[in-house]
Design a protein around this nucleic acid. Structure first.
Length: 599
RNA sequence: CGGGGCGUAGCGCAGUCCGGAUAGCGCACUUGAAUGGGGUUCAAGUGGUCGGUGGUUCGAAUCCACUCGCCCCGACCA
């Protein structure tokens, strides 16, 4: 491709609304252009990268026997009502009516559609298992789109759905997808953590998240450096460091007048102490009864964990009126002491608290010097908080580490939630109708591109890993005349050999071209300048290492192929095991060939 | 949805508080000249319904009301 005939609108200045590196570079390198909040044009260069990621996905998916199809973006409302998700996901769905006033939504995902399809077209267990996928645009009316394509409203997603007769088959596909995802992200040049994840509105039993580590990530990952336990902070279990409370003197309970003071923050000031001296008491309303939930004052209750340990999906914080009824006092004065007829559940963080401060279940009153056992009894000790710095691994008690990441993929074991509701049933060997067992597997394609940039860039711009680079090579003539002639020749050779090459044929100065080439991140530069050419050479320069070497123009094709192969090998060992290539790559990396400008 | 901010040329911004004449600056773009291996220099240009509507006023980018859009923090999030 000739730059002058192509379309790469680069920007020298940073756009005002780009908060993170990938967003900034995607705009500046001319990959995307915003149409409206959360809606992006993919410009030619950006599209090429998207297509590279899609190609990798298709290869790895079909390697595992998955079948590609394509479903509509516009979906009739009634399918969603059948699954029960029309209401649950209502807030992210864009709704529309056609000319006959029929109701539709723009698909935020496709479980319902594929299940409907399979329900109609697969009627024997002999046809199972099947694993379908598509790559297509999704629309989710995000509450707050941000970070460019990382949280966009319209985005490109690969979504896959498997249908099995048996748990074993389902488990096999889950594992196959797990493996496929690892390969996909590795080939994209992404460092990922695979972590235990929450199933959210998808429902289902088991889920793993593939999270690309990035400072700018929205997800917090908790991991154990010792045993490898890793989970989303929303889900992560924890142990707490044990503190000995032996020998600490317990004072008698004292009632303190605390007029109008309800929030922990205010109470800290009043008592002149840290938040961790308080036992926060929250009243929750469950399906059948109320719970008093205790947690240390500086921590928050993880409601997902609470729901799951109490096996009560309907759990919500009680209304002020209900609190008054249950505790006898207004919101803000609840406490465990003399709290009757309600189970007291406590987070592990409360266990070693001595002489704590709690509400007194009387308005404007708190207790000081409250002690467990003596002043109240806990019905059950549970892990219902979020892990904090210093907390320990639930499995091996090593101190947990925290990192940030971008969720690029997630896989779920769905069970029979959708198949049962949408009648995707088959007859088993005994002639009984049973719902199919499902799994679902998603990759945020556009988001993956952003994650790759988050992990692969420097102050000059993007540094594409070879497999997702929009072009592998950029040929840069620094002058007209002979330089351009040689450049054209090399460009022709590379193209003829199916190496994706960009020829910067613009009449611009050297620095300008270099800066653009670095910004758009092409891995290999072929630089043709007068001086080097007089010595009969051109220059090959690697974007990532900034190392360069002079080579004879006739050898450029050979060298480039070897660099590319070596790079591929780096990303995907099993695929390209060419020792020779590695050696040549090493030679260029080490600068063993003639150096123009040693770094 | 709550809180905050912004909207002036393709991009980044000044001007708005305190109303006044052809609405400025940098980058980009066009033309010319010099230059030619890491974002050159000089000169001359193109380009703006000041987000929109209504109002106040002799006069509105500027004041008022409404409205649309965008961004940030929070709530939310496969």
């Amino acid at each position: 491709m000739r730059w002058s005939e192509y379309f790469i609108p680069t920007l020298k200045e940073s756009p005002q609304d780009a908060e993170i590196i990938s967003h900034n570079y995607m705009i500046r390198a001319g990959l995307i252009y915003k149409l409206s909040s959360g809606l992006y044009n993919y410009l030619p260069l950006g599209l090429r990268v998207i297509q590279k990621v899609e190609k990798i996905i298709r290869e790895e998916m079909s390697r595992k026997g998955a079948i590609e199809l394509l479903m509509p973006i516009l979906q009739p409302k009634d399918v969603w009502q059948k699954s029960g998700r029309y209401d649950v996901m209502s807030h992210i769905m864009l709704k529309a009516r056609d000319r006959e006033d029929r109701e539709f939504i723009l698909g935020p995902t496709h479980e319902e559609i594929i299940t409907d399809l399979v329900a109609h077209k697969i009627d024997s267990y002999r046809s199972l298992p099947k694993n379908f996928y598509q790559i297509q645009a999704k629309f989710r009316d995000e509450i707050r789109p941000r970070f460019g394509v990382i949280r966009a409203r319209e985005f490109i997603m690969k979504d896959g759905y498997s249908f099995s007769m048996t748990r074993e088959d389902n488990e096999k596909i889950y594992q196959a997808m797990h493996d496929a995802y690892s390969a996909i992200f590795r080939r994209c040049g992404l460092k990922c953590m695979v972590i235990e994840a929450d199933t959210g509105v998808m429902g289902g039993k088991k889920s793993h998240e593939f999270t690309a580590t990035a400072e700018s990530g929205e997800d917090t990952i908790v991991s154990c450096p010792s045993c490898g336990y890793a989970a989303n902070r929303e889900l992560a279990k924890r142990k707490l460091k044990e503190k000995s409370i032996l020998g600490i003197k317990q004072y008698p309970v004292a009632e303190i007048h605390t007029p109008g003071l309800k929030r922990v923050e205010e109470l800290c000031q009043f008592f002149d102490c840290e938040a961790d001296r308080f036992i926060k008491t929250l009243i929750y309303r469950g399906k059948d009864n109320f719970y008093a939930v205790l947690i240390r004052g500086d921590l928050d209750v993880n409601e997902n964990k609470l729901k799951s340990v109490l096996k009560d999906e309907d759990l919500v914080l009680a209304e002020p009126k209900e609190i008054k009824k249950v505790t006898g006092a207004d919101l803000g004065y609840s406490g465990p002491v003399r709290l009757k007829n309600i189970p007291i559940i406590a987070d592990l963080s409360v266990k070693d608290m001595v002489n704590a401060i709690t509400g007194a279940n009387k308005n404007d009153m708190h207790y000081k010097y409250v002690n467990i056992g003596r002043d109240f009894v806990v019905y059950d000790w549970l892990d219902i908080g979020f892990p904090q710095e210093g907390d320990l691994c639930p499995k091996c008690s090593t101190e947990l580490e925290f990192s940030k990441g971008i969720e690029v993929g997630q896989i779920f074991e769905l069970g029979t939630k959708y198949s049962a509701r949408l009648s995707a049933v088959i007859q088993n060997e005994k002639g009984e109708d049973v719902p199919m067992i499902m799994g679902c597997y998603g990759i945020g394609v556009s988001r993956t591109v952003a994650a790759v940039i988050e992990q692969n860039s420097d102050e000059k711009g993007i540094i594409w890993p070879i497999e997702v680079a929009p072009f592998q090579v950029i040929v840069i003539p620094l002058d007209k005349g002979q330089c351009l002639e040689v450049a054209e020749k090399i460009y022709g050779q590379l193209c003829a050999d199916k190496i994706e090459t960009l020829l910067d044929d613009r009449d611009e100065r050297a620095g300008f071209k270099f800066a653009d080439a670095d910004l758009i991140g092409i891995p290999i530069k072929i630089i043709i300048g007068k001086k080097v050419l007089q010595e009969g050479n051109v220059e090959i320069k690697i974007r990532r290492t900034a190392r360069s070497a002079a080579v004879n123009p006739d050898n450029v094709l050979k060298e480039v192929k070897q660099i590319i192969l070596a790079d591929f090998e780096d990303l995907s060992n099993e695929k390209f095991a060419h020792m020779e290539c590695r050696q040549v790559f090493q030679r260029i990396q080490d600068g063993e060939t003639k150096q123009i400008k040693p770094e």
